[in-house]
Design a protein around this nucleic acid. Structure first.
Lengths: 126, 126
DNA sequence: ATAAAACTTGGAGTAAACTCCAAGTCAATA
DNA sequence: TATTGACTTGGAGTTTACTCCAAGTTTTAT
């Protein structure tokens, strides 16, 4: 699969795909005889993973660490596990912050929906 | 309340507080006779809000828009409501992406916990 | 009164994550 | 075979959100 096809399939620009590879966020992609990227099914799984992790807000750096450990083989299993645990903790924290903001938004939306009918807000702040 | 006190109270640097104000993410802060910031309770509520929204990942830009509408008065209530609704939608989407990544992480963590006992992974990819 | 600490501004610098560009190579078609 | 379009690399440029700095007030403490 060419870089263009992968780009279209996953909605990630070719530049970004090359960037992820250069940074080590995914292992080196398979190339054909003339050095052009030819993504295998395994390469695609890494792309998918990278996309999912970035979409969630995990840093490129965190993913790079994981891939580096992965490439060092089975001795790094405990380290990889602890990395995964801390990434999970990070995402759970992110979610809590989103929930706090959502709570605030919900409260405001309720008041604004009431105000949209009368045309005036019944409270003074924010 | 001085900028230093606010900074300590909320764990936001004085530079960041000035930045938020300069960008219009919070309305102009109350000043004393010599032009030095003296945060009132209302100013603090804006700071708190700004902190909460930024922590959730909402852009400075989105918050600036809200404050601008707020400062224009009651005619902007419908616009403010629709802005709040789209911000909520954005946060809900963010949370779904986090949940997707968490699902993946949980799956891996399970397998790694099993592997940590044997010292070897039972699957070949990622 | 005077030094030190905290404040002011405008503007420059930084980090992360892309995004774009130039100059060249490779592949497919008329 | 020639030219068009996709690919390659290294490196420069961009955006967002700070973060730091310099040069100058203001406040506080001795």
């Amino acid at each position: 699969m060419t870089i263009r096809e992968v780009s279209e399939k996953y909605g990630v620009s070719a530049d970004t795909l090359r960037y992820y590879e250069k940074m080590g966020m995914i292992p080196p992609v398979t190339r054909n005889a003339s050095g052009i990227r030819d993504y295998t099914a395994e390469d695609l799984r890494w792309v998918e993973l990278a996309k999912c992790m970035r979409a969630s807000g995990l840093s490129v750096e965190a993913m790079v660490q994981y891939v580096q450990l992965f490439q060092q083989g089975d001795e790094t299993i405990p380290e990889r596990l602890s990395l995964l645990l801390s990434q999970r903790a990070e995402l759970l924290e992110k979610r809590e912050k989103i929930d706090a903001a959502l709570l605030w938004l919900e409260r405001k939306i309720e008041r604004y929906e009431a105000a949209a009918e009368t045309g005036v807000l019944k409270w003074t702040d924010e």
